[in-house]
Design a protein around this nucleic acid. Sequence first.
DNA 1: GTCTATAGAACGATAGAC
DNA 2: GTCTATCGTTCTATAGAC
Lengths: 175, 175
Amino acid sequence: MFYRDGINATGIDRVIAGAGVAKASLYNNFASKDELIAAYLEAHLDRFVARLCELDTLTDPVERLARFFAGLARSAGEATFSGCPFANAAVEVRPDSPAHRVIERFYGELAGFFARALGAAPDDPAVTQLVVCYDGALSAARILRDPSCVAAAAALAQSILTARRARPVAPGATN
Amino acid sequence: MFYRDGINATGIDRVIAGAGVAKASLYNNFASKDELIAAYLEAHLDRFVARLCELDTLTDPVERLARFFAGLARSAGEATFSGCPFANAAVEVRPDSPAHRVIERFYGELAGFFARALGAAPDDPAVTQLVVCYDGALSAARILRDPSCVAAAAALAQSILTARRARPVAPGATN
DNA sequence: GTCTATAGAACGATAGAC
DNA sequence: GTCTATCGTTCTATAGAC
C-alpha cells in the first residue's frame, strides 16, 4: 500500500484492514508509523541487496549493468510499478525520520554496486552518473508511464561504462 | 511551503496563515486544495518555460545544455533546494488530479527543450536520456544532499549531445 | 446595496496513538 | 474500540470598498 498509493495517503486504518490484524497488534510490533515505514523500506532494501549480490557474481561489468537495468525494465513494465520505493519515500518522510536512514543506506548500496562494476571509488563521478541514471529512469518511467525510459537509461549506463573503460583515469590527468 | 515541506505535509491552515488571508478567501479563489496545488505547479511551470525560452535564444546546443544544468546546479546549492517540484508533486498527488496534468505539461516542455537542442524528435531516445538526466540529477541531489550530482549529470548530458552529433542517425541505419 | 474581504466556529471524516 | 488532534471544507457574522 505504501508503495502503490504513497505513504501519507495510506492511513493506519487501511494498513491494519489490509493486514487483517488489530490496531493494538500493529503498535505492539511497531512503535509508530514512522517505524513501520522504516520497516517497509528495510524489507525492500533486503530484497534489493540480495539482487545486487546475485549480480556481483557476474564477471562481466557490461553484463552486470545490463542485467540490472533489464530487471528494472521488467519491473517498469508491470502494472504494479510505481517507481523507486526509496526515492518516493524520500519525498514523503522527513529528513530526520528513521525511514530516511534506510533510504541513505539504499543509496550507499546502490553506489557500492556501481562502484564495483566500474572498478571505481564510490564517490567517483561515473558512479554518481549511474546513480543519476537509476533514479531518473525510475522517476521518469513512473511519471510518464513509459518503461522505455528505463531502456534509454540502460543504454546511457553502458555508455558511461564504455567511456570509463576507454579512459579509466581521472579527468585532468595527462594520458 | 508545498515545495519545502511537501504537499501532504502542508495543511490549509498553514497556507492561509502564511499567506495572511482568510480561509474563505482562499476557497473563493481556489475550488479545492487540489486546484491550489495545480496553481502552485502552474506558477512553477510558467517560470520554467520562461527560462527555457531564454535558453532557446542561444545558438550553440552545447551552451544551451551547459547553461541549463548550470542553473540547476546553482539551485541545488541553495539551502532552499528541495528537488524538482514536479517530480516531488507526482509522488504526492493522484494520477487523475488536476495537478498531474500540469506535471505532464512540464515534462512535455522539458522534452521539447531537449529535442530542440538536439535537433531531434521529442520521442527520440536521446531526448529521453536527457530527461532521465534531469530527473535523476535533481532527485539524487535532493536525497543525498549533494549538488555534485547535478554536475555529474551535466557532464553526462554533454556526452549524450556529443554522441548524437557524431552519429545523428537512428541506430540500426547503415552508416 | 452589493461585493469581497476578514476571523473564526463547526462540520464530518480520518489521521495516528493507546 | 476509543481517544484526541487535525485534515479539508463549509458556514456564520462582521467590516470596509466601490
